[in-house]
Nucleic acid binder design. Structure first.
Lengths: 279, 279
DNA sequence: GGGTATTGATACTCTGCGGGTATGGATTCG
DNA sequence: CGAATCCATACCCGCAGAGTATCAATACCC
């Protein structure tokens, strides 16, 4: 089975529309129809049930969509990892402001290791980190569980913390010592691309979010460590019944690099300093 | 990156010889040389260092070999799983005579489950079981640890047992209550394809092995459960310091099928009967 | 050291496949 | 009932990939 055909299939399966899929692939619709038909003939199974007005996946199609996407990411990962093989450095990816102030310490600790190499920090968008790992763009990622999808990844926990409310200093709740989720009932909580709209504003990155909070348009529940790098006009208030999340360092399950192991080791070592220091 | 190109690369990387690789691929050598060169140009890295007499892998090439093989198996797995998606049955693969007499019980127990479906038992060659799972040919496998490679697989342990010596009834050690490995020092132990020759005969399957034992040409160390289905002219003797191995039921890490879960459950349930019954 | 074998690269040709345009047939909707 | 939407079919074309013939470089052997 050709990977190009599989890419075509994935596009159609996700769009459920040959025309849109063809546009997305940058080709015309007729060759796409033919390619899919040829794929079905080669596999010996129907992948779509087509009426002249709609396209739906068959059971075989659903399986191929899931497995095929996995195979395609494995393919791009193979390519990227081979391309990066010459460079001995590591790429660490993370969202901005979620490192719990650990990043600097991790890198400092790592620099002491004999296996240390240059570390490039790649700041990615929301939810992109795990994808970057799986596609071979990055060697390690700082993620937050349970928000991130760690399928196919290995990880070590670094830091667990509770969400706090991030508010303008002028907010009616800003001076409270502690609040509960119900205190935020009449606030317009934001939502991220991918989650479902809930009446609040759509935010694409944390800078935008903080801006909206400053303007009083929304408030947010974020991990407690945001307070380390907060703009002057914002403040945080503990929320007694808020969710907790865990900062982890993750890497591809099958990675075997010496320097990556050292980086993980450094991250774990640094993180365990925190509880020790507070005791 | 095209999967065809990647297959070409893997062939050359494994043969380290363009001519042989071309033969194996069923094409001529010149197009293969060109395809590899084109792949190198597309990736922007050298994959081989060529002298006019020999070919070796570069670092990037080694990475691409490892990752590329993984991607290609993911690809064939996607195809096979999609093709088999229509059939609700399960395929269970195993080597003959390693089931510790559990197979029948597992299938009987599974039949009681509401999620039960037809189970096809696929008897594969030595070391093929894990490959069949990864390539999507089979849904579950009975394997022995630590002999099998379970990378990318999940498994449940079923039965741990010690190896025993399998001997002709007429063998000088056949009537001993127990022996040690050193008692076998002057025997010609067999070896399997893939392991290194040790002076004994090469065996390809267990029927051949048992035949050779009958002829007095070799003796073997096998899991204790072989005794359930042993020819009349052979017998087993415990070996006090022999290795132990564990029978496990394994499946692809990312499988999510309801019936497969039930099969695993049935296998575990049946296996735990054994210790209970002996107590 | 020269002849030979081996191995990868190059030159050239050609076929087939993947892609484009034009159009048809079916279904939904106003 | 006409218009719009959407997938399939017919037909054509260009190029990528495969083949043959040959060259160039190295190792090997007497």
């Amino acid at each position: 089975m050709d990977s190009r055909e599989l890419g075509y299939f994935v596009a159609v399966a996700e769009e459920l529309n040959f025309g849109r899929a063809a546009t997305r692939l940058g080709i015309a619709q007729p060759p796409l129809s033919r390619a899919i038909k040829q794929l079905e003939r080669r596999l010996g199974v129907a992948l779509f049930t087509r009426t002249s007005r709609s396209v739906t996946l068959t059971v075989a199609g659903e399986v191929l969509l899931q497995e095929g996407k996995r195979a395609l990411t494995a393919l791009t990962a193979a390519r990227r990892r081979a391309q990066r093989a010459g460079n001995p450095g590591l790429v660490l990816t993370m969202k901005p402001n979620i490192d719990g102030d650990l990043l600097e310490k991790i890198l400092a600790q790592f620099a002491n290791d004999p296996a240390a190499v240059e570390v490039e920090v790649l700041i990615g968008g929301i939810g992109e980190q795990a994808v970057l790992l799986r596609e071979g763009e990055a060697d390690a990622a700082l993620l937050r569980l349970p928000h991130a999808d760690v399928d196919g990844l290995a990880y070590e926990e670094l830091l667990t913390e509770q969400d706090v409310a991030v508010l303008p200093r002028t907010h009616r709740l800003a001076d409270r010592a502690s609040i509960t989720l119900s205190d935020l009932d009449d606030e317009q909580l934001p939502y991220w691309p991918g989650s479902r709209p809930n009446g609040g504003p759509l935010v694409r990155d944390s800078a935008q979010l903080l801006q909206l909070i400053s303007l009083g348009r929304t408030v947010a529940l974020l991990p407690a460590s945001v307070r380390y790098h907060l703009r002057d006009d914002l403040t945080t208030v503990p929320v007694s019944d808020a969710d907790t999340s865990t900062l982890v360092i993750a890497w591809p399950q099958d990675a075997r690099s010496r320097s990556l192991a050292a980086l993980v080791e450094a991250a774990v070592a640094v993180s365990s300093i925190r509880p020790a220091r507070t005791s």
